[in-house]
């Protein structure tokens, strides 16, 4: 369902052309749990941005569910981000003035769901991530782990087939990290494709397939044997 075909991305910094991604070919099937593993500056975040339709490749084609994304209009791309992709970021990116519930509701607002449906689903999601007693708290009243749970609940609001997590445990302690990764594993078991971006081998080990990225190229791609 995710198909990257000769993807390259370069930025112009001053007069210099800097290549971030070079000829990346990748195929992720529905229901997979893939880790994109690489050191900082390897281009893994750029790759995630392209997969998440936040960025467009310089050359190459990105097919999502058989549709070439670069051929779509900005509004259609917005719709894909809304309905097909859930994002989880290292810094949570919750809207500070909104309660946890309203944060989780937001993707459903953009999907024009009715208020009643939104409320009910947002409550159910917060309950699933174990935050039923934090529904009307604002982000600054939540711990890091709780914030990331809210972010995960929000990412799953429109039941997207793909979850993109960019260093989801980067700002968390190891115990909380473990809980968050378990939660992401559970979501994958529920049938959602998960792409996890990390620089940490131990975190990548939660995935069932590890793709190593170095200097904008795919270095290796292997299945993890569950232990």
């Amino acid at each position: 369902m995710i198909e990257l075909d000769g993807i390259s991305k370069s930025y112009r910094i001053g007069t210099e052309e800097v290549a971030v991604l070079q000829d990346v070919n990748l195929r992720v099937a529905a229901g997979e749990f893939v880790a994109l593993l690489g050191p900082s500056g390897s281009g893994k975040t750029t790759l995630m941005n392209i997969i998440g339709c936040l960025d467009a490749p310089t050359t190459g084609a990105y097919w999502l569910d058989g549709q070439e994304v670069s051929a779509l209009s900005p509004d259609q791309v917005a719709k894909i981000r809304n309905l097909k992709i859930g994002f989880v970021f290292q810094n949570f990116y919750l809207l500070p003035r909104m309660t946890a519930l309203r944060n989780v509701e937001l993707p459903m607002v953009y999907a024009s769901r009715s208020r009643a449906v939104r409320r009910e689903r947002a409550r159910a999601l917060l309950e699933q991530v174990g935050l039923e007693d934090r529904v009307s708290h604002r982000p600054n009243e939540l711990s890091g782990g709780q914030k990331q749970r809210v972010a995960i609940a929000r990412a799953m609001a429109n039941e997207p087939p793909i979850l993109l997590a960019d260093e989801p445990t980067g700002s968390l302690d190891s115990q909380t990290s473990q809980q968050i990764l378990r939660l992401i594993q559970e979501i994958n078991v529920g049938g959602t494709t998960v792409v996890l971006i990390t620089h940490d081998e131990a975190i990548a080990a939660y995935a069932r397939r590890i793709i190593r990225i170095r200097d904008g190229r795919v270095e290796s791609d292997r299945e993890v044997v569950p232990c």
Partner: peptide, 16 residues
């Protein structure tokens, strides 16, 4: 700006 970025990532269109 950050809020706008978050909203776009959640599926807000330019028109929205």
């Amino acid at each position: 700006t950050r809020e706008i970025g978050i909203r776009i990532s959640l599926g807000a269109s330019r028109t929205t």
